[in-house]
Design a protein around this nucleic acid. Structure first.
Lengths: 151, 151
DNA sequence: TGTGAAACGTGCTAAGG
DNA sequence: CCTTAGCACGTTTCACA
């Protein structure tokens, strides 16, 4: 799918605030309801627009600790990889997980109520899948957090 | 603000899909429209529910490279810190930024079209603020990504 | 505090320029 | 491809149990 300048404007609006009315968005991008609606539908169908969600405040919900976990493994066979993948996907405290190029094999972002809860998570994870080396980086302050891509 | 089991159910629904109708959500949490609506409003007012957004697909929009950037600095005075903060906040390719405890001072998550675009970003950043040491981890695969806290 | 119904605004569809 | 117009649906409010 080919997207143009208007699509990008719409995307910017929706990434900023998906709660606004079609009329508002149409006005903001300099168009009107129907064409905007059609474009949104096409962007949805193309999978460019994914889920629509609310962002909850971690601190106010008691998730006051955020760790970035750097993982090195010695086992690189596909069976191990699959088990690791399942383990990570199954744990709700893992907000994000990437397989990396180079020295470090995986990075996780983990949100938990406190350091103790992180340890519980950590013990549970390494008991389920063998990992060679783990480093946890503790976040002191979230300087910036956005879901909006710079389209 | 004190939140109960029903609030948590509502939060789960909204974190999953904020596009559903009140009726649907009410049915899902075993209540009815008005009380659910009141609760959502209160959660909004309390700031527990933040912005409502759409999640766009990075790959389909040409953001095919994702880097985690580990930064060490030698300068820890508040002036430097403020300049770094501004620099990071101003750059839209920085999706996330945390100040860390320990050895490494900052971690950034950066989304760009390709490695070349990352280099442009990197050069531009270090020309604006002095940093002692930078390590970039390149993501090969996003194993998991969620905005939903396990409430 | 939850229920039901009424009033309002939007999303969505369809027809015409 | 955009504009205008209309219907159906969802949200929001309010009176009452």
């Amino acid at each position: 799918m080919q997207i143009d300048a208007t699509d990008r404007k719409i995307l910017r609006e929706l990434q900023q605030d998906a709660g606004r009315s079609l009329d508002d968005i149409a006005r903001a991008v300099g168009s009107s309801k129907t064409p905007v609606w059609t474009r949104i539908r096409k962007l949805r169908e193309a999978g460019i627009i994914g889920p629509q969600v609310v962002i909850a405040d971690p601190d106010k919900l008691g998730f006051e600790a955020c760790f970035f976990v750097l993982i090195r493994t010695s086992e690189h066979d596909s069976d191990w990889q699959q088990r690791f993948l399942n383990a990570v996907r199954a744990r709700p405290e893992v907000m994000e997980a990437h397989r990396l190029a180079g020295d470090i094999d995986y990075i996780l972002k983990v949100r938990v109520p406190n350091a103790r809860a992180y340890d519980v998570f950590y013990q549970s994870l390494i008991s389920e899948v063998k990992v060679h080396n783990v480093t946890a980086l503790l976040s002191m302050e979230e300087i910036k957090a956005t879901t909006a891509l710079p389209v």
